[in-house]
Write a protein that binds this DNA or RNA. Structure first.
Length: 338
DNA sequence: TCTGGGGTCCTAGGACCC
DNA sequence: TCTGGGGTCCTAGGACCC
């Protein structure tokens, strides 16, 4: 069982578990303490982010060797464009290349768009391949619970069931106006399109620059000393400043999150002008945000987030110097008046 | 049972402006 | 004194993803 610090006595959740552990009801997301109770014989290992990142890069290198467009969608997920070729043959070739190049196995989902491919991947057994298309979608996915869809987790699944929608095919046929009332004008109709396997999102070859960066820490035991909370937030702000300087990004806003026991989460944010990655500036801003909380309750988690100023544009060729000669005259500014 | 860490996106509501 | 009808922007919270 891999997860957290690898110590089931400490707070953390399971990242991944062997088939043997999964038979005991230990799966990704299971609290480590519960995992130890369900499967006392399990060996617990810490999540090794460096090893995971290194493996992800190896996988990426293998995918790059294929001619089609590809999109990296996380540490253990990617899309490859099959083009006009046989997608099943491509899937097998990807699996072989990954096994040869990295020793890793993967499951593959095939679809006519990213949504179908992803849902197919969810249905595939470890190391297996599942193919979906618009024609087979209703029979294969229709009878399943809505949580199989991307964008429907436990909360929306619960809400759908409250509306009497227990299967994907019911969501696909649901009244659009009713969905808009329940989920919002944009999200409601979109959920219905997802249930129909409709998706026109393009492959994203280049990851856009990140919009935020955050750090958080859950205490092993709830903390009711406000000074200890303040110290933890200051540490997070300092770590954030280091991260931002390494990434050459600036914070335009700093938000502090406090999760009170047992599990109630709130956040406050303050603006930083001009944007900065200086430790003092971020610490001061985090302190101001934290001051808006009433800390007379035990705290379970502290978090600090930087909302990033737009990334500096990449260096380009120097622009040609402005031509000498008459400059265009500026429009005289006229005050708005009725 | 007791719920991590790092992200993104969407929505509701309020402030503010004309 | 009690009050419209557009907008936009910001914040906080929630849901989802891996």
């Amino acid at each position: 069982v891999v997860g957290g610090l690898g110590d089931p006595a400490r707070r953390g959740v399971v990242s991944g578990a062997s088939a043997e552990a999964r038979e005991h009801g230990v799966d990704a997301g299971t609290p480590l303490r519960l995992a130890a109770r369900r499967c006392p014989a399990a060996v617990f290992l810490p999540l090794d982010a460096h090893a995971c990142r290194a493996a992800a890069r190896e996988v990426e290198a293998v995918l790059r060797s294929f001619p089609g467009a590809w999109e990296i969608a996380g540490w253990d997920e990617a899309y490859v464009e099959a083009g006009a070729g046989d997608p099943l043959a491509l899937a097998r070739a990807v699996q072989r290349a990954l096994a040869d190049g990295t020793g890793l196995s993967c499951s593959v989902g095939i679809g006519e768009n990213k949504l179908q491919a992803k849902v197919a991947g969810r249905l595939a057994p470890p190391g297996g391949i599942v193919q979906l298309d618009t024609a087979s979608w209703p029979a294969t996915v229709g009878p399943l619970g809505p949580e199989v869809l991307v964008g429907v987790g436990s909360a929306r699944g619960r809400q759908l069931r409250r509306l009497g929608i227990e299967r994907v095919e019911q969501l696909a046929a649901a009244d659009e106006a009713a969905l808009a009332v329940a989920f919002g004008a944009a999200l409601g109709p979109r959920l219905r399109r997802i249930a129909r396997g409709e998706d026109y999102s393009p492959l994203v070859r280049r990851r856009p620059p990140s919009r935020s960066h955050s750090r958080a820490h859950t205490f092993d035991e709830d903390v009711d000393d406000p000074d200890a909370v303040r110290a933890a937030v200051a540490d997070l702000a300092a770590a954030l400043a280091r991260d931002l300087r390494r990434r050459r990004r600036l914070a335009a806003r700093v938000a502090v999150t406090i999760r009170f026991a047992p599990f109630e989460t709130h956040s406050h944010a303050v603006r930083i002008a001009p944007p900065s990655a200086e430790r003092d500036v971020l610490e001061e801003a985090a302190g101001r945000a934290l001051a808006r909380f009433d800390l007379r309750r035990p705290v379970r988690l502290v978090g600090a987030r930087a909302d990033l100023a737009p990334a500096a544009p990449r260096q380009r060729r120097p622009r040609p110097r402005p031509q000498p000669g008459p400059q265009p005259m500026l429009e005289p500014y006229l005050g708005a008046a009725p």
